[in-house]
Nucleic acid binder design. Structure first.
Lengths: 160, 160
DNA sequence: CGCCCCATGTAATTTTATAACATCACGCGG
DNA sequence: CCGCGTGATGTTATAAAATTACATGGGGCG
């Protein structure tokens, strides 16, 4: 299970690389990576935390890119459907994918103190969940795995 | 990992046993198992599916037990906080716990066709998720594990 | 050109959840 | 018995999240 984790890193390259990867994949698959969609992904990449649809909408509005909820939701739907972003159900919020283009069975580690989110890759049908599903005769199509707790940085803060 | 699964069973004993178990635990812990809270749990037990807060509120209203959203939300908060019910984040809905009183690290199998939900027990810190968290230095306090797919019954239907 | 498809713009509404404040019942110490 | 605190409930209003429905526009293609 591979995890990007909470380590500090170069944000600007992080954003550029993320956009570039998605741009390439859209070209390859004939998807339209329009200005609104691109801008929403940039906004998500700028933070390493989950943003609500209305936070995103506020920024779009400031930039004149759209002012009504469907504008944000449609862009987010596009990003989520194609695996470029993920919805964090527990927070009703969205985050840029850190593994665009790779196969997707994400799990999330969500810091309750600073809202940072780390994305981990897992094997879809292995482990306890897959076994329980097989036992019950249940066919898993998607799984939401979200752990809430404290990231390393906030553990130190709260210890102080 | 133990799962109740989707097998048919005796509903009425299911409801009675569930209420009795919660009643006993409330007495033991000095919690107030009031009429509204009891009725909400009964409503949840009657279905083996997740109910939205407003669906529950509608039933309470029909019975004259309360008509405003906080009535339902407060009862649900009580049930969830004490482990007698669970919130399914993916559906913004609630379901009665099938293991009241036992230690809690639930995972859910949610049928997208009929909304039935099975609750499975898992070991909290084992498996891939626990490993990923340790690798990242993250401390998990709670985890939401929700798998969506088709239950055995609906697999047969959709095959037809 | 005429058509379709997809993306966008916009208004209105629905669904989900909480804040804020008043009231009531119970238990307990004085 | 009274006064008080605590926890449950009743009620009004509002916030937050998401969707429906319908109008507009641009680009490719026959």
């Amino acid at each position: 299970m591979d995890s990007i984790g909470f380590a500090p890193h170069d944000h600007s390259s992080c954003i550029q690389d993320g956009i570039a990867a998605v741009d390439a994949q859209c070209r390859a698959e004939g998807l339209q990576f329009t200005p609104v969609r691109r801008r929403v992904l940039e906004i998500l990449l700028q933070e390493h935390r989950a943003l609500g649809a209305y936070e995103i909408l506020d920024r779009l509005r400031e930039e004149g890119l759209g002012s009504q909820p469907p504008v944000a939701y449609r862009a987010l739907d596009f990003l989520v459907k194609n695996g470029f972003a993920h919805k964090i159900e527990r927070l009703n919020a969205f985050i840029a994918c850190t593994h665009p283009g790779e196969s997707h069975a994400p799990a999330f580690l969500i810091c309750r103190a600073c809202d940072a989110v780390a994305e981990a890759q897992r094997e879809p049908t292995q482990g306890q969940l897959g076994q329980a599903a097989r036992d019950a005769g249940f066919v898993i199509e998607r799984a939401v795995i979200e752990a809430e707790g404290l990231c390393p940085k906030c553990q130190h803060k709260s210890a102080a």
